[in-house]
Design a protein around this nucleic acid. Structure first.
Lengths: 243, 243
DNA sequence: TCTTTTTTTGAATGATGTTCAAGATGGCGC
DNA sequence: GCGCCATCTTGAACATCATTCAAAAAAAGA
């Protein structure tokens, strides 16, 4: 008799309900005013039930970050499966990132907070491992795969670098751009152009820096646009406006 | 009679005492357990007096971040005044960053938290403006100055880019590396080598990507070491071990 | 239908950030 | 010196939430 399994399923469903409601509450009222009691009330459950799922508020935030990041990973996975020259595929990672951010404008705000020592340390080890297993590891696998292909096909020569350190460079650039976007007021001066176009542009420049073939002309805006559009059409067809 | 000024001076002194004590408390017991009452007690003042200086805990954290960042800016200012080819000077910014981090290992942990929406928004507008005026603006001025020199001397051609967008690229890379370092556990895989060496290496690669003359061979480790050492000796002589 | 187990509940608890009325201090005129 | 006034300091009281847990409700099993 599967009543135990049904229970389990219902429990997981309710967890998803809580997370979805949390996302909405945070979107509408900000992370600053987010309260556990309010979340429980909005779902018509008691706080006790909420705490059945999440050991603490920090735990919930890590879980929410993980859940959202899953979509992020799915976009990256498309790029991982895309048949194209290695350089275009790594570039497509930056495009995937831009698309993800446009669809989840709140994500990095929450993630930035969640990944701070203060919150991260206060979450349970289980939630933290879950985050790493479902997010950091898959992304690393995908990106390293592209780098490995590039090396195998002769597009890239690692020299003294490792796959991970090349990946870390692109990862850092991407994170930094997200910081830039969300460091509200701190860096308005840098926000003269669309920051995610800046990410694409700089990813391309960095690819040139790695001498990743085929090299491109960094000043050719039309080519950059064309490449971005092509990737949007070929890989993220269903997620982008048909412009 | 300057008794009013003396008061003012004493008030500012006490503020510095609070900030220094806060830094120590956070270093010793972590940001997680940092409490206003404890800070007041450790300075032998009442909480009320502490609140005379800082409107809220968040306010204090922003002030602490600003105070520490001042040293950061001073290191950058040395680079700004250093007489050297433009490319070496921009590279030296990355070196300055590494040195700063080694001397202030806690800084980015605190800054990452402080610059999150949740904390940043809760701080007073005055403290926020102070941060920008004493940190973001000076850094921007220094870096843009180097970029302007590079353009003037023909080492760099901006093309479609602006000074700010070039600066943003290096800024993002740097921030991203700090994230990488502090995303404890999240990205252990990337931490196979000293992350600040990685920052230097990738800054160099990005300089190549910008076609910033003179180009260097990215695989020449000895040259990279030599350059880092030279900058340490010429610019940060007093802050580095004489190795 | 009754008993046992599991789940849910929400008032009570506890930890902290913040306030503010009362008290202490110190300059200043006499 | 002395008392008056403005200013500063104090810390107990307050407010806000996160979290707990004993009791109630619901569900499963006999």
């Amino acid at each position: 008799m599967g009543f135990r399994e049904r229970r389990q399923r219902e429990f997981l469903d309710r967890e998803r309900v809580f997370l979805e409601a949390a996302r909405e509450l945070i979107r509408d009222e900000g992370l600053l005013g987010f309260q556990m009691a309010r979340l429980a009330e909005s779902c018509e459950y008691s706080v006790g039930t909420l705490y059945q799922h999440f050991g603490s508020k920090e735990d919930l935030l890590v879980a929410l970050t993980t859940a959202t990041a899953t979509e992020h990973v799915r976009l990256f996975a498309r790029v991982g499966n895309w048949q194209a020259p290695s350089r275009e595929r790594l570039f497509a990672i930056a495009v995937a990132d831009s698309i993800f951010v446009q669809r989840n404008p709140e994500y990095f705000r929450i993630a930035q907070y969640t990944l701070c020592e203060v919150v991260w340390r206060a979450a349970s080890p289980d939630r933290r491992s879950e985050f790493m297993a479902e997010t950091a590891e898959p992304i690393r696998t995908i990106v390293n795969g592209i780098i490995a292909d590039a090396v195998a096909s002769g597009d890239l020569s690692l020299g003294v670098l490792t796959q991970d350190s090349v990946a870390a460079g692109f990862w850092a650039l991407t994170c930094g751009v997200h910081d830039l976007v969300h460091a509200e007021g701190v860096c308005d001066a840098y926000q003269t152009e669309d920051p995610y176009r800046l990410l694409c542009r700089h990813t391309n420049l960095m690819l040139n820096g790695f001498d990743w073939k085929p090299l491109i002309d960094p000043h050719d805006e039309a080519a950059l646009d064309a490449l971005i559009h092509r990737i949007q059409n070929e890989v993220f067809h269903d997620l982008c406006d048909h412009t």
